[in-house]
């Protein structure tokens, strides 16, 4: 990957999402000042009402594609962006809203909304990469602030971003957290989930919730057998797989075994 031009233009786009990942960027505080000095923040509605015309050197895209309007808009974003980086579980896997992919949306809308006629939506929530080529993905619900800053820094300086594709277990071991499955008998998605969060939940004696989606070679079937040994049956595993990254292929396909 080559370094972007001097004073590059960065844009931040929102699709179907909760804005939490954009807030992670605002939450960078100290680093944000440094970022703002090095790059021109050209479009970032969550942070500023100003807007600078494209094209953009780097686009950070939050959110999933859930409407016909989204389908057209992501093409425009791609056309204006030299590098397109998706941020968060919605953009990389379809997000929590991809739970709709497992049900009949038409049946659900009247149960949720008082005036269903105003709701215009697709049958599915899909990741950005299903629609346009994506250069880099930052996983997580929300993304890791450290990964975001490191990635922006890497892109600015033409360095390879550091994005592990191994299990969350590697981060538990690196920080010295005793395994919650082995030492406490707590079901944990860590062995099948991608590292990047810093293994926060096991450090507080909780099992991993899978916010970062599937790791590079997830063996969900083998983990599910062990969960059963620990007393967590199909219903628990189904719910665990169908949360933040329900539509990530490895979690989606494995989830059918637990319906």
């Amino acid at each position: 990957m080559s370094a972007v031009a001097t004073c590059p233009k960065l844009a931040v786009w929102k699709f179907s999402s909760c804005d939490g990942c954009q807030l992670s960027l605002l939450d960078c505080e100290d680093e944000l000042l440094a970022i703002a000095e090095e790059i021109e923040i050209a479009y970032f509605p969550e942070a500023t009402s100003g807007e600078i015309e494209g094209p953009y050197d780097v686009s950070l895209v939050e959110g999933s594609v859930t409407t016909a309007h989204d389908v057209g808009r992501i093409q425009e974003v791609r056309a204006q962006s030299a590098l397109l980086v998706t941020i968060g579980a919605c953009a990389t896997a379809g997000g929590i809203q991809a739970l709709r992919n497992f049900v009949d949306v038409g049946e659900w809308i009247p149960l949720v909304y008082a005036s269903p006629e105003y709701v215009s939506t697709l049958e599915t929530s899909t990741p950005i990469a299903d629609h346009v080529p994506v250069d880099l993905e930052l996983r997580g619900c929300p993304i890791s602030k450290a990964q975001l800053v490191d990635t922006v820094s890497a892109l600015l300086h033409g360095r390879r971003p550091r994005l592990a594709t191994t299990s969350v277990c590697t981060e538990c071991k690196a920080r010295g957290t005793p395994c919650v499955m082995v030492a406490h008998g707590t079901p944990c998605l860590g062995p099948v989930t991608q590292a990047g969060c810093g293994a926060i939940c096991p450090a507080y004696a909780r099992g991993c919730y899978g916010c970062f989606g599937p790791m590079e070679s997830p063996n969900v079937a083998a983990l599910a057998r062990q969960w059963r040994e620990l007393g967590a049956g199909d219903d628990v595993m189904l719910r665990a797989l169908r949360t933040f990254n329900a539509n990530a292929p490895a979690f989606r396909e494995a989830s059918y075994d637990h319906e």
Partner: peptide, 29 residues
């Protein structure tokens, strides 16, 4: 391999496993 999670735990708890990688980081400013 049907049972293995490829999670890496065995190598990380092993007192002799020594594999490492190196990576470069740079300050943003």
């Amino acid at each position: 391999a049907e049972r293995c999670l490829t999670c890496g735990n065995c190598t990380l708890v092993c007192p002799t496993c020594f594999c490492t990688s190196v990576e470069d980081v740079n300050d943003l400013a």
